[in-house]
């Protein structure tokens, strides 16, 4: 296990290097440049201004030099400065990453709270009205465009039944109770959708597990049904559910752009999306890189966890 872990960690090095090349390449290929978005209407066309800004941002150097500089700096933990706000990228991003992680974690947690009981009961009462109901609900959850669902939630719970704030963010370190209050709507919007996936997954892995021999053995030994289901089957059936939730968590790290836009949630997705529009190169590059490393790390952890939970999986 240890050797496997070390091996996997070593494999991350080329992955991250490839990621830097890909990100850098994409950012370089973006049409137009930062000076166009900084300049306002007029004096951008002034070659003197352009030259001064290019020099300041290091854009006058050849591309490979820019790349080498960027990677070199990152290796020492320096992410550079946002060309738009002129604050360090680390400051720009470190304020936002927690907001996104907070939203993603609570959203996924909520989805599990909904999905596990729903999926389990649907599997146990297979082909009943409950099962069909759960399936239809989860299919609807998958098929509604996210932004539409979010706006409907806002109108429903902030305007027609005004019980929740429509939007905004309060850091949990600032005021935990209040932060949860503001989190409810966005987390529901994340959770409902993710729950749609996980419910279906839980249901099918439950069905899979119930049909196994040990369940019949347990039943024949006279164990009560609830104990068979909840003590033995569910535990095994949850392994894929938890695994997939972990993968969903990784995907959510850059995937909540739409919800962050709607709920005025100052997350990393919104930040990078805006940086793309403004061509704020250091923020895009470093932002995607940091997220990418987090995604890779989460995937690795899930993989390892999966192997711990499910020893039948071979290493290698």
């Amino acid at each position: 296990m240890l050797i496997y872990t070390i091996n996997r960690l070593l494999q991350l090095i080329p992955v991250v290097l490839i990621l830097t090349v890909v990100v850098f390449g994409f950012v370089q290929a973006l049409p137009g440049d930062i000076i166009d978005s900084l300049g306002g209407q007029e004096a951008v066309e002034d070659p003197e201004v352009r030259a001064a800004l290019e020099k300041e941002f290091g854009l006058d150097k050849p591309i490979y030099v820019q790349y080498a500089r960027w990677v070199g700096k990152i290796a020492t933990g320096d992410f550079g400065k946002s060309l738009i706000t002129r604050r360090p990228v680390s400051v720009e991003l470190l304020e936002r990453i927690p907001a996104t992680i907070y939203l993603a974690l609570v959203g996924i947690g909520l989805s599990l709270v909904i999905a596990i009981p729903l999926g389990t009961i649907a599997a146990v009462r297979r082909n009943t009205k409950f099962d069909y109901g759960a399936q239809v609900t989860s299919l609807l959850g998958i098929s509604i465009p996210e932004f539409w669902f979010a706006i409907l939630c806002v109108l429903m719970f902030s305007l027609y039944f005004p019980i929740l704030p429509s939007s905004g963010y309060v850091a949990p370190t600032e005021d935990f109770a209040k932060s949860l209050w503001y989190l409810v709507l966005p987390a529901v919007a994340v959770g409902f959708r993710q729950a749609a996936f996980t419910t279906r997954l839980t249901r099918s892995s439950m069905l899979d597990e119930i049909s196994k021999e040990y369940v019949d053995t347990a039943r024949s030994l006279g164990l009560p049904e609830w104990k068979v289901i909840y003590k033995y089957t569910l535990r095994n059936a949850l392994i894929p559910t938890i695994t997939i939730s972990g993968l969903q968590l990784a995907a959510l790290l850059g995937g909540t752009v739409v919800l962050e836009t709607i709920f005025a949630w100052p997350g990393i997705g919104l930040t990078i999306y805006q940086a793309i529009q403004l061509r704020d190169y250091p923020v895009i590059q470093s932002g995607v890189l940091i997220l990418g490393v987090m995604v890779v790390a989460i995937n690795l952890m899930i993989d390892l966890l999966y192997r711990v939970l499910n020893p039948r999986v071979q290493l290698g």
Partner: peptide, 14 residues
């Protein structure tokens, strides 16, 4: 793996 590490919607956006 390098491409899969691209988080969420950001690859499409780019």
């Amino acid at each position: 793996d390098g491409l899969l590490a691209f988080p969420g919607l950001l690859l499409y956006l780019l």
